[in-house]
Design a binder for these strands. Structure first.
Lengths: 338, 338
DNA sequence: GGCTGGCACTCTGACTGTTCGAGTGCCAGG
DNA sequence: CCTGGCACTCGAACAGTCAGAGTGCCAGCC
């Protein structure tokens, strides 16, 4: 176990490096932080920290920079979550309150998060699989063509065409609409398949094929939408990433376009609380020099989706975590209200 | 007017510079192109071209590079549109054919365009203002809460909540739904306001407030959606932009997040045919070192939206224009089919 | 008149050598 | 166990040099 002072030295190194972007030396450390010891002592401590793998030298006779392991220790033991200031909170609330629909909520959230953290923000749309059904609507667009519209409790709307073999009367349609809704409204998506299984049997023989087609489309929509959607913002902040630009930034941009990768990444962030993945802890190679801070958000006590930011490993963890947490809370509130 | 040969020299300069990304000198030109004259002659021609403002030297004793004006001449007079190869066409069609809904069409299009041109692709969602109404649906979610769903002929769906003062019976709802649809289905969005103006009067006094609220929301949806949506892809291609990276790329990333700016940019591209905006021709400052190639696409003969790519002024114009045009055509087809 | 080869000139980029300063590791003494 | 001192190392910055590419111009040639 590292002594108290050595942890303090590590904390100071992380803070200074995050601030200056430059390797930090023993002398500068003692000047900027009241460690109460001389540079020489700090040097000894640094030697130990380096041996343990918490910090590293880019080259001999340069200052030290934290390693991924160092950041990890910093995040776990040394840093708290920095709460936002009251004006900041108020600004968040005002900004989010103006949203008119779900797209707008997500859009505003992503911009807000990007601006607040000055990093790349990623917001997952509230997931269909965990949501409940608010309403299912069936419309007859043409004699043998129906439109199925699915509305979720988070305000999301999905629609699909259903082409039928035979025409389907308005009465049958109203009947199906009513029965379908009575079974699934308020239920979770995952429960829907079981709930509608026996529905075709209660219809006239002639209509069964159509009913089955509608149900199939409904279930298909659920399945397809299990691949969830994302919104991304603040990519311009990537330019503040580092000096060795093109090499660092390219894989990150690529990763950001691979929504599947990002979703997996967000998904890994455990169910409860905030997750911080530092550098090589990210399974996806392109993000090995970035950190991802993510957290779930939701309308009730339960998380329906995740959001987070992607930034350089050299980031202000307490501030970022504070912003991410605060935004997630407010978005949850907004969703609950609507 | 420039002589035939000087135009040829300009063409050669553009082609070489696009290929190599390096200023091109007189000697290299004569070696790579069969101009039939000596480097000295080419030098004289280059001096003229420079005087006229078509090419420039980054610094004395370097080769020449085309100016925006030079590219403009190249695009207008010297370059054709390079058609895609048959396999490429087939690939486009196959890729787009797999799309399941409008989001998917747009998503696939943007990826396709980015991949084909190796640049940043921008695709506008089919516009509501030019579309027609396929259906308007009204659902009662709670006693004093309705949901309005608008479905367009391009497959787009928008929904809004309508909170009403007084409860609204199922009969009245069905009545309103029927009358509303009979008036607006198949009509253009811009015509809707006039078509529904007198609708409230034909309802019971008690229901008029609600009807008005519904109509207001409907019109509001149209107005709001006049600010249209975009999808963007291929931002990783920005890394191939140039050497002086951070400076060039930052404003471009910022511009790409400003959807309003992009929409305006696409909008400027005249109604008919393909538009190419080169460097400073772009009104938006951040894109002064990029070119935008855009074209309208649509299901019928009429364009319902635009798509295009953003790339360095030093781009392969014939190839890019070919790809953009081809993709626009196929997307139009797909939309017409669905 | 227009094209060409030759020539002198200029400028950049790469390379080298040097210096300066920051930072380290180690050691002896408190 | 901490501290001051010291020798050492290494990289960043700077200046100087050099080669190469490219130009502009001029006189001669077709």
């Amino acid at each position: 176990m590292l002594s108290e002072r050595r942890l303090e030295v590590l904390r100071a190194i992380v803070q200074d490096y995050v601030g200056t972007e430059e390797p930090v030396g023993s002398k500068a450390l003692t000047e900027r932080h009241k460690l109460g010891v001389s540079p020489a002592t700090v040097r000894n401590d640094m030697a130990v920290l380096e041996e343990e793998g918490y910090i590293a030298q880019p080259h001999t006779s340069a200052g030290r920079i934290p390693t991924d392991k160092g950041y990890r220790l910093f995040v776990d033991k040394l840093a708290g979550v920095k709460p936002l200031s009251t004006p900041e909170r108020r600004a968040i609330q005002n900004f989010l309150d103006g949203a008119v629909d779900l797209d707008d909520v997500v859009g505003r959230t992503v911009r807000l998060l990007a601006q607040l953290t000055r990093q790349v923000a990623v917001v997952q749309y509230p997931s269909l699989t965990r949501s409940t059904v608010r309403h299912v609507e069936l419309l007859s667009l043409a004699p043998a063509r129906l439109m199925l519209v699915l509305i979720t409790d988070t305000g999301r709307v999905e629609q699909r065409m259903v082409d039928t073999q035979t025409p389907f009367g308005e009465n049958s349609l109203a009947d199906l609409r009513a029965r379908l809704n009575s079974r699934v409204v308020g239920r979770r998506f995952t429960d829907v398949p079981n709930l509608v299984q026996d529905l075709p049997e209660s219809f006239e023989i002639d209509d069964r094929a159509t009913v089955k087609a509608v149900l199939a489309t409904l279930l298909e929509t659920l399945a397809e939408e299990a691949e969830e959607r994302l919104m991304i913002g603040g990519t311009a902040n990537l330019t503040r990433f580092g000096h060795d630009f093109p090499l660092t930034i390219r894989p990150v941009l690529e990763a950001l376009e691979e929504h599947v990768v990002l979703l997996k990444l967000l998904g890994e962030a455990g169910e409860s609380g905030m997750a911080v993945r530092i550098g090589h802890e990210n399974a996806y190679e392109g993000l090995n020099s970035t950190s991802v801070v993510s957290v779930g958000y939701g309308s009730g006590g339960e998380a329906v989706a995740k959001l987070g930011v992607v930034g350089p490993t050299r980031m202000d963890y307490p501030g970022t975590m504070g912003a991410v947490r605060a935004v997630a809370r407010y978005v949850g509130q907004i969703l609950a209200e609507s």
